[in-house]
Amino acid sequence: MNDFINELQLKIERQENEINFKNGLISILSHDSKELFGTFLWLIEELEQKTISEEDFFKLLPQIKRDARKNLQTIQDSVAWLKTQYGEFNIKPVKIMVLDLFHYLEEKYAAKLKEKNIKFHFKGDHNAFLTSDRLLLEYVLDKIFNNAVKYSLPGQDVYLQELTEGDQVVLSVIDFGTGINEKYLPVIYTYDNPVFLGTAGEKGVGLSLKIVKNFISLLNGNIQIISTENKGTTVSLFLHKFIE
């Protein structure tokens, strides 16, 4: 009887988390879209009524561009998550060399790494592998690595570290950047966490980490974030070496 009650409580908790996640996602999309289009419409109307000069209008365009890029990223993240929720989405496990994941990030972020003069290193077994869903795992590492670059200072190092323990593979993205104050760690996956600016003024709504946690759950894995303000952050993924 107790086992049945515990199982029921777990199901209720999972459903509540899923409902909160969806409500938060809708709230973010609604708020950001209204904010962006409202600001843009206001600027156009002000320009038409000549209450703002063309010079001031063009001065504000870089901010509009940054906001539009942020909204586009939010939409792309949402679409990635929606693909896992509707239709016939199934985990598709394939053999993935960990070093290939390193090269994937190295190539995708080549321009940003060069711009900030950040050195990206691999630490671990060059022959290590795991079977996982490539789409979900690459998305997860992409978002974690993006944060590592965003919150690193020019000239710092970032690592992708692999550690295989029996049938578990631990992948860690390690940076030595701005870190996170420990008081914010408990709410990092909620919709109450503050917006942090990157070392080059990059801005995000924090939606990616929420989807990352959701995707890791789909892969039957776990995520751990260890961070110290002004010393850096280590995000570790605990994954099964083999999944079915």
Rank of each mutant, 00 (worst) to 15 (best):
N2V: 09
N2D: 08
E13R: 10
Q15A: 11
E16C: 09
F21K: 11
L29G: 03
K34R: 15
F37W: 13
W42S: 15
L43D: 05
E45N: 08
L47N: 02
L47K: 04
S53K: 07
D56C: 07
F57L: 01
F57I: 05
F58S: 06
L61E: 01
P62S: 01
Q63I: 07
I64P: 00
K65F: 10
A68V: 13
K70A: 13
L72Q: 11
T74M: 10
I75R: 06
Q76W: 06
S78L: 10
V79Y: 11
G87D: 07
I91K: 10
I96E: 01
M97K: 15
D100W: 08
F102L: 01
L105A: 09
Y109H: 12
E115W: 06
K123C: 00
N127G: 09
A128V: 04
A128P: 01
T131I: 11
T131V: 12
L137C: 01
D142I: 08
I144R: 03
N146I: 11
V149E: 03
V149T: 03
D157I: 09
E162W: 00
L163Q: 08
T164N: 04
G166F: 01
G166Y: 03
V169W: 02
V170Y: 00
V170C: 00
L171E: 02
S172A: 05
F176D: 01
F176T: 04
G177R: 03
G177E: 03
E182M: 10
K183G: 03
Y184M: 06
V187L: 12
Y191S: 12
N193M: 14
F196C: 06
F196I: 07
G201M: 05
G204L: 09
G204Y: 10
V205P: 05
L207F: 15
I211N: 03
V212Y: 09
V212G: 05
I216T: 06
L219R: 08
L219T: 05
I223W: 07
I225W: 11
S227F: 10
S227Y: 10
S227T: 13
K231D: 01
K231E: 10
K231H: 05
T233C: 09
T234M: 06
L239W: 00
H240Y: 09
H240I: 06
K241C: 04
F242I: 13
E244F: 08
